[in-house]
Amino acid sequence: MSFKMNFKFKDRIGQARDGIRVYLHEPVAIMEKELMTYFYTPIAYIVITAFLVVTGIFFFKDFFYFNQAEMRGFFQLLPLILTLVVPAVTMRLFAEEIHSGTIETLMTLPVTTVKTVIGKFFAATIFVTLMLAPTLVYLVSIIIVGSPDPGPIIGGYLGAVLLAGAYSAVGILASSLSRNQIVAFIVGLIICFSLWLIDKIIIFLPNKLAFLEYFGTDYHFRNISRGIIDSRDIIYFLSIIVISILLTTKILDDRR
């Protein structure tokens, strides 16, 4: 009996996996195309270089001063840097398609709008994650010189990927609002920056509004990057992603 149930359960998982594979076929195709386009154009290299230079400066600024084998300086500023970088990565995703008219080809392919948005979201998130990858060099260098606490570093990178996802989804939403990439960038920047800023301005607000802190990205990022992985923080980032994707889908469908 128990074997039979087990067997059935495995079957279910297999079915679900096949279902996901079928569902994600088009999003993955769109993602591959977007990633390819990123690396065809110089944008990718410019953004990655700028990102590494800036994070490098902040990583090493206080590193020798504190004489600690940790990446706190890097993770402290990462949310703010991503606020600036992610909208630059996502700005073209829909704005350019609307501007050049390719949206007409894209939206008349046999793909639902939400799948298109998911594909672009994957592309942006993976691109930002790839951009974070070279910073592992810092990690290697501190492992060589000392013995860092793994918790904050694992948490920091997990938080960074979640943050990259949340900002990417918000940036794509901004990109679907305009045919102008600069406008898309600025709108994305404003939304991301506001999300970053919320928990910083809380001290100016009456106590009753203190709950607003929970809406801030930096608040949740700080929690995770302390090395404490709490489901609430993960749910926060996932909610931002889901809400932004659904809003983007709605906006694109309403254009019809």
Binding site: S100, E104, T108, P110, T112
Partner: peptide
């Protein structure tokens, strides 16, 4: 709409295609 699109081939006006591919 998805089924309809899958049996249609469409060439939009002035053939917009991705320039950087």
């Amino acid at each position: 709409p998805v089924e309809v699109r899958s049996i249609i081939g469409y060439l939009p006006e002035s053939a917009p295609v991705y320039g950087d591919m």
